[in-house]
Design a protein around this nucleic acid. Sequence first.
RNA 1: GAUCUCGUAGCUCAGCUGGUAGAGCAAUACACUUUUAAUGUAUGGGCCCUGGGUUCGAGUCCCAGCGGGAUCACCA
Length: 569
Amino acid sequence: MNANLSPEEIVRREALVKLRQLSIDPFPAAEYETNATAAIIKANYQEGQEVSVAGRLMNQRIQGKAGFADLHDASGRIQIYINQEVLCPGEDKTLYQEVVRHLLHHGDFVGVKGKVFTTKLGEISINVSELTVLAKSLRPLPVVKTDAEGNVYDAFTDPEMRYRMRYVDLVVNPKVKDTFVKRTKIMNAMREFFNERGYLEVDTPVLQAIPGGASARPFITHHNTLDIPMYLRIANELYLKRLIVGGFDGVYEFSRNFRNEGMDRTHNPEFTVMEIYVSYKDYNWMMRFTEEMIEHVATQALGTTDVQFGDKSISFKAPFARVSMTDAILQHTGFDITGKTEDELRAKCVELGLEANENLGKGKLIDTLFGEMCEKHFIQPTFITDYPVEMSPLCKRHRDNPELTERFELMVNGKELANAYSELNDPIDQRERFEEQIKLMERGDDEAMFIDFDFLRALEYGMPPTSGMGIGIDRLVMMMTNNESIQEVLFFPQMRPEKKQDGPDLAAFENTGIPAYWIEALVSLGIHTLEQLKEVKPTALHQNLNTYRKKNKLDIPAAQLDEILTWIN
RNA sequence: GAUCUCGUAGCUCAGCUGGUAGAGCAAUACACUUUUAAUGUAUGGGCCCUGGGUUCGAGUCCCAGCGGGAUCACCA
């Protein structure tokens, strides 16, 4: 038996062998027919009803000749009662004495048949008359227990382990499962809202030759046949607009976007944004549409428009407040940005102690003022409207003021949740705005956009007036499920790959003929295996070893490059 | 990227100014036919993240690394 197994794993593997000796297949192939679930039995309680259910056996409380255990299925938990005489009415008590008492463990999958009854203490339970082993669990699950007051004991809480082993997290922490069920309900409710209005759900490329539609650093990959670099999408906006050019009334997509930027509790390298574009509409229509949609989603998915997020209560009841960008900044800084020059804006930022270097254009400066001074104050859903033209290169100019755009962002809990425009459909203006972005790029704004000439060509064929809106699904789910970190609403958040931590492979070094004094040096240089040794440049290693020799004043011959080459080959 | 902080049994966690590794749950054995987290008695279980250093002696102190978390920076 493998020496790396823990004692509990060894016990379970031995049980596996013993089950086979008793002619019980621990991993049977056949379908196991069920006619109920834990939730159904509890909801439609009928004394004496014959049921067949399957799930994980948990928390056995088996005593001498009878006892209890819990069966967890996808719907929840139900208690089972196992009595030796009911399970094994004949002479042969093996199933009870051996299998139930010794060979089944916490976490094993079993199917049970039996009559439903209520225990003395009033808990709906199944009196098991047949038990089938469905799958053995070879690793012990954490045993988490909850008492009558809801206190949780021995909770499985380490975030690293929870995220890396989400399957365990889901088994053991019911709230986690609930979050993900809600996530799907939220997306379904949104879909339903769009579909009812006749808008079409579409798929557009994830792999793009030009990463457009947003300002962000993309992931780069390479297409072999075309022999060109390709990018994972940072946004799908430009593709959806092409479809509006193509004549659809309204299109939407749940877009998995990828951005090669920092990771923290609100940023994952891949994340989901829903974007929708509707022709013949403007951003005023889109504001009404958005607040109605969010109200609908909250009602459908949560059953209420009132959401508790941390210590704050948030109401998603429409209509939401509307505040212009200019008013928001005026309100929170007393400074009126109307008609101000870049230098005046920069001076104000400096006065307020905000970062405002020469790379920042007018738009970025206003964005800084808003982001630093105002954003955090908007806890209840609020539409911030009419952004400066410099920070919105894809947005139509404001009908009353050419310095502004017809844009809104929806702020909730001090964070941006949605972003929408009256889309820019003047191809000549669009081309100029892209060229402005290129100038910003040349000034050192590494987030400025690339020019997508095919998109400009599409606009030149004519795009009807259109309003578009994007909403961060992960952030919406976080708010609606009261989770402070994005990792909690993604099944498999991105983590650094697991690295097995072995000690240095001294034997391999010795076998390669490396002298003992150099092995010591290699280890302290962080080279623990032959693979690592082969990855370093021999010339660099040569230098490093001799530096090590000198630094530690070792009385050994200096390393020779030829010698090092013989180790590697 | 910066700072702080954590890494001890399958899980949750103790382990003081350095002196032979601890508890509860889980596991194993025995007893027990209705328990409500969680029966009683007994037993087993540890590369204390890795490597190096200081020391007579390191889970504990120091250095480096790996991995996590928090805060900040970055984030149309």
